[in-house]
C-alpha cells in the first residue's frame, strides 16, 4: 500500500515537472498560430488558432535586418552550416588529438593532455578579443570559416575519446599489427568503428553547442548575410506572433538532430555491449 502511495506521489511530482517544461513551449506554439491582434487583446493562448501557415511562411520569407538583406530561411541555413561545421570539425580534431595522445610515443603526453584539458577553464568569452583580432588580421570576419574554426577545438570531446581509447586493450593493437594493420588502418578499422557511439553522441553535443552560439557570431559577422538563428532571435522585430513563430522554429534543428542521430546512438550502445 505504502509502495503505491510513494509511486503515485513520485509520478505526480514528475508530471508537474513535465508540465513546467512543456506548458510554456506549448503556449508559445499555440499563441503563434493566432493573429497578433488576438494576442494583444486576449494574452497568451492555450488552444490552437488558424493562422499557422500565414504566420510561419511570413517569418521564413520576410526580409529582415537593418538593411533588409536576411530572411529567417537564410538564418537557418547559416546556423546549420555553422553547427554542422563545428560538430564535424571538433569531432575530427578531438579524435585525432586523442589518438595521438594515447597511441603515439609522445613525451609527456599526459601533461600535454592536461594542458589541453584546462582550456575548459578558459571560456570563449575570455579570449574573445584576441580571437577576434586574429580573425580580423586573417581577413576572416564575415565568413563561415571565421564562424566555425575558432570554436571547433573541444577539450571535452578530446577527454572523452582519450578515456575511451585508454580502455581499448593493448592486445587489440598488437593483434592488428600482426595482422598487417598500420597506424592509419588501426584508426580506421578499429578505433573509428569502436567509438561510433561516442562519435554520434559528441556530434549531437557539439552540434547543439555550435547552434547555440550567440556572442561569437555576433562579433565576427557584421554583414547580415551571416546572421544565425540565435542572433536572429534577438534581432527579430515585428509582431509578437511572428517572434513566437520564429522561437518555435529555432527549436526544430537541435531536436531534429537528436531524433535523427539518436537511432544510431542507441543502436550502437546495444550492439557494442
Amino acid at each position: 500500500m505504502t509502495r503505491i502511495i510513494i509511486s503515485s506521489l513520485s509520478h505526480f511530482i514528475l508530471l508537474i515537472g513535465i508540465l513546467i517544461m512543456v506548458v510554456p513551449v506549448w503556449m508559445i506554439f499555440a499563441s503563434s498560430t493566432h493573429t497578433s491582434s488576438m494576442i494583444n487583446m486576449n494574452g497568451l493562448q492555450i488552444f490552437l488558432g488558424d493562422s499557422f501557415y500565414e504566420n510561419y511562411l511570413r517569418v521564413l520569407l520576410y526580409q529582415g535586418g537593418f538593411f533588409k538583406e536576411i530572411t529567417a530561411l537564410k538564418m537557418f541555413f547559416n546556423s546549420f552550416i555553422m553547427a554542422t561545421g563545428v560538430a564535424i570539425l571538433s569531432v575530427v580534431t578531438s579524435l585525432m588529438a586523442a589518438y595521438a595522445l594515447v597511441y603515439y610515443r609522445i613525451k609527456h603526453a599526459t601533461l600535454l593532455f592536461w594542458i589541453i584539458f584546462i582550456t575548459i577553464l578558459v571560456p570563449l568569452e575570455l579570449r574573445i578579443f584576441p580571437t577576434y583580432s586574429v580573425m580580423a588580421e586573417l581577413n576572416l570576419v564575415n565568413s563561415y570559416f571565421g564562424l566555425i574554426v575558432p570554436i571547433s577545438a573541444s577539450a571535452i570531446a578530446t577527454l572523452f575519446f582519450r578515456q575511451f581509447y585508454k580502455t581499448v586493450p593493448d592486445e587489440l593493437l598488437e593483434s592488428a599489427k600482426l595482422d598487417g594493420a598500420n597506424t592509419w588502418r588501426f584508426f580506421v578499422d578499429f578505433l573509428f568503428p569502436l567509438s561510433k557511439t561516442m562519435i554520434v553522441a559528441m556530434l549531437i553535443f557539439m552540434f547543439v553547442f555550435g547552434y547555440n552560439q550567440y556572442l561569437w557570431p555576433l562579433l565576427v559577422t557584421t554583414s547580415e548575410q551571416y546572421w544565425t538563428v540565435v542572433m536572429g532571435l534577438k534581432m527579430m522585430s515585428g509582431s509578437i506572433v511572428h517572434r513566437f513563430a520564429f522561437v518555435m522554429m529555432s527549436m526544430v534543428p537541435p531536436i531534429l538532430i537528436i531524433i535523427v542521430l539518436q537511432k544510431h546512438f542507441i543502436k550502437g550502445v546495444f550492439q557494442d555491449k
Binding site: P169, E171, L172, E174, S175, A176, L178, F190
Partner: peptide, 12 residues
C-alpha cells in the same frame, strides 16, 4: 601469428 591470452578478437 599470435594467439593472445584474452584472444584479442576484433569485437566489432
Amino acid at each position: 601469428a599470435m594467439v593472445f591470452q584474452n584472444y584479442a578478437l576484433y569485437p566489432h
